[in-house]
Design a protein around this nucleic acid. Sequence first.
DNA 1: CAAATTATTTAGTCTTGCCTAAAAAAGTTT
DNA 2: AAACTTTTTTAGGCAAGACTAAATAATTTG
Lengths: 217, 217
Amino acid sequence: MTYSEENYLKIIYHLSLNQAKGITTNAIASQMESKPSSVTDMVQKLADKGLVVYKKYQGVSLTDEGRFTALMIVRKHRLWEVFLLEKLDFSWDEVHDVAEQLEHIKSDKLINKLEEFLDFPTEDPHGDPIPDRNGKIAKVDKKLLSEIAAGKKVICVGVKDSSSAFLQYLDKQQIALGSTIEVMSKEDFDMSLTLKLGDKQVTVSNKIAANLFVKTI
Amino acid sequence: MTYSEENYLKIIYHLSLNQAKGITTNAIASQMESKPSSVTDMVQKLADKGLVVYKKYQGVSLTDEGRFTALMIVRKHRLWEVFLLEKLDFSWDEVHDVAEQLEHIKSDKLINKLEEFLDFPTEDPHGDPIPDRNGKIAKVDKKLLSEIAAGKKVICVGVKDSSSAFLQYLDKQQIALGSTIEVMSKEDFDMSLTLKLGDKQVTVSNKIAANLFVKTI
DNA sequence: CAAATTATTTAGTCTTGCCTAAAAAAGTTT
DNA sequence: AAACTTTTTTAGGCAAGACTAAATAATTTG
Ligand SMILES: [Mn+2]
Ligand SMILES: [Mn+2]
Ligand SMILES: [Mn+2]
Ligand SMILES: [Mn+2]
């Protein structure tokens, strides 16, 4: 498996979470920041190796083997993120890029020992569940903050976007995993939300709310 | 810098330690397990980038920039080896192959934080010195056990060959870094050595002795 | 439903890093 | 010093992974 094949599989896996079948060439290309024609080439190769099912013009889906392979990469990515945060004092907006490289290191012993060293964490720094060595991954029950009705109280459990810009914004607003958020009101005009965080009140745009995962208390 | 360019630089650096100038195409090819013609291609590219000095038929040597780059790779390799041994319970014969991959991860913050996490180690598990972040590396004073005269007492400080086979042999003979070794006698016929290790005596071939670094007490 | 638009694949190139075979330079013999 | 051997470079090619431009299929629209 090359570095590149692994990145494709991981992206196809992530796209599959929202949209069950037929991941399109275009969707993959935009995630990979490459071109649809390049995706066609690669997807044909992955199909030859039995990692995806592909029929011309029908998009792709992962085979069981492809899904397992993708999960092992996600596993490595998230365990390394925990390592960087917990052991090396990285902040949650710095871990992703380095994990993007570390996820390709090939050694079962390494990743299993790392998991043990970290004391078998179940979530990464962004609230995403970590697959176990058999590819089993917890299904988390979470909603977007933008879908929560005014008056409800929720707990922040994850982020949809893990870009530095977004995470640093959350830091600035003192929103972290585990924070309690009360939706005070929703503005009809632009769907912005006024939130109560501890003892202070902030207003956030719908775009912010649509990238924050919460669970109802 | 690609993965491949980094491996070339590291090999040229290691070859430079024994033989000051004009590292030959053949020497590099045999270390890279590739062909002299491939080396010529790569060495020309490295020369274009200003990392080596190369003149046809004269071999190559590192420029200051090439040497620094190589030292940063060696630094990462050795720090990762320490991490694997100390934190993840790898044995000294298992660390090299994984470090061979980890040495290519690009992040200054990562390697500097890792160094701090490991408490600024000065040596890797094979007794080799770890360059600091400025490329400064300790010059270690060591001799091969095969060069030690009968009757002398020495301390094991490193290995020349870090293959699994050799390191496991040393484990079996209970020779580790720091072990005291007394050369009892040398056999003229095959240059094998009889050693006193603690309270027991063992005989080792010249090939073994030529791969063990020691310092005189 | 035919035309226009959009999505996708195919065809043809490019770069990187490798290879083999052949040519040329360097080194060694006699 | 010429002949032979070894080392090194050059020439030509291949596979992976990307790209652009062109062709074709699918979808949307009037
Ligand atoms: Mn990646
Ligand atoms: Mn994450
Ligand atoms: Mn390497
Ligand atoms: Mn080492």
